[in-house]
């Protein structure tokens, strides 16, 4: 994959939150929410960021959208004019034209729609504030967007309270699509939905990607959902990416012990597959006080002396994955659902 195809490339992204104490609010330390994260997303590709709460996946996504100011790093975005822009260093005023090309789908379908605006106002807002078309063309576009997300046009004048969670999520998707973005950041877009509705939204996102050539940064904790949407998966642990690999490879042959444990912990909806789980000991490390060496070593059953002192860096494997583990080449880790 050459750089020319990448819609986004993130290099050494860091986001530290200062910890302040005392009357003078002196900075006494940092929460390293995102610590040296790099990845790329190609056109038409879905990259999933997975990990447990506090691993920095949401912070990463907010930095990319500049809803948060990154501490360090480069976020290179390829505009529709085929120009590379560093989102991280842009001034607020320069961000606006760029925002049209990067949109977001939110986790909570309830709080992401303003309850005081009608559906057409919500979907039409990006068009309105970017002064696209006149009233009639905007209305036409809103109607088309409703078609795209498979909601009846007649619902245009309704308020969000009239819709179910799944329908609201469709409205949120329509809003994100309004400006024809190249990249959509989806932050846990189905985790608040009922099982029977999740599938509808997952399929819709897959279809839209095929039709519109969208790229997704898919932030999720549910590995089952991730398997259904991603081309590649990046696993995060305490602010760092520990493994990036094509989906099939990552699930079938994980190279990082944390990925292995994560996969093993996912309950499989088949009582005949009650496997012996790897149950991790202890708790996720505190991002304000990460262990020396590999942050995962206190919970890792394969840890050796080296892991306690030396921070592993992402290195390529034979299968086309990147893994940050000192013992990646020697361990034979178990995956799930070998591809048939």
């Amino acid at each position: 994959m050459t750089a020319a195809h990448n819609v986004l490339s993130v290099e050494r992204l860091k986001k530290y939150f200062p910890i302040r104490r005392g009357l003078l609010r002196r900075i006494v330390g940092h929460v390293k929410a995102v610590d040296d994260v790099s990845f790329t997303i190609a056109r038409g590709e879905t990259l999933s960021l997975v990990g447990e709460s506090g691993c920095g996946k949401t912070t990463t996504s907010r930095c990319i959208l500049r809803a948060m100011q990154p501490t360090e790093g480069v976020i290179r975005f390829r505009t529709d004019a085929d120009r590379d822009v560093d989102v991280a260093s842009l001034a607020r005023s320069e961000l606006r034209p760029l925002r049209r090309q990067m949109q977001m789908i939110f986790q909570d379908p309830y709080s992401s729609l303003n309850p005081r605006m009608t559906i057409s106002d919500i979907i039409g807002e990006p068009l309105l504030v970017n002064r696209i078309g006149d009233l009639a063309t905007r209305r036409q576009r809103i109607a088309e967007l409703l078609d795209v997300v498979q909601l009846p046009r007649a619902y245009m004048n309704r308020f969000p309270h009239a819709f179910s969670g799944g329908q609201r999520q469709r409205i949120g998707i329509a809003r994100a699509l309004a400006l024809n973005p190249a990249l959509i950041v989806a932050d846990e877009p189905v985790s608040a939905l009922d099982v029977s509705v999740q599938a509808q939204i997952i399929n819709l996102m897959l279809e839209l990607q095929d039709r519109l050539g969208l790229s997704y940064l898919f932030v999720a904790h549910d590995l089952s959902v991730v398997k259904h949407v991603s081309h590649r998966v990046a696993v995060m642990y305490v602010g760092r990416i520990v493994e990036i690999a094509p989906t099939a490879t990552l699930f079938a042959a994980p190279k990082h012990p944390y990925t292995e444990a994560l996969l093993s912990a996912v309950p499989v909806p088949d009582p005949r597959q009650r496997a012996k789980r790897i149950v991790l000991e202890g708790e996720v490390a505190d991002p304000s006080n990460t262990p020396a060496g590999c942050a995962f070593h206190p919970r890792c059953r394969y840890a050796v002396e080296r892991c306690k002192v030396e921070v592993p860096v992402l290195a390529p494997t034979a299968e086309g994955a990147l893994v940050a583990c000192h013992r990646a080449s020697e361990l034979g880790l178990a995956g799930v659902g070998a591809v048939s």
């Binding site: 959208l65 809803a67 606006r96 925002r99 049209r100 990067m102 949109q103 977001m104 939110f106 986790q107 909570d108 709080s111 992401s112 729609l113 303003n114 807002e125 990006p126 504030v129 970017n130 949120g172 809003r175 309004a178 400006l179």
Partner: peptide
């Protein structure tokens, strides 16, 4: 979220 959404819309 809806405020963030408006911000992201520009």
């Amino acid at each position: 979220d809806f405020v963030t959404a408006a911000e992201l819309a520009g």
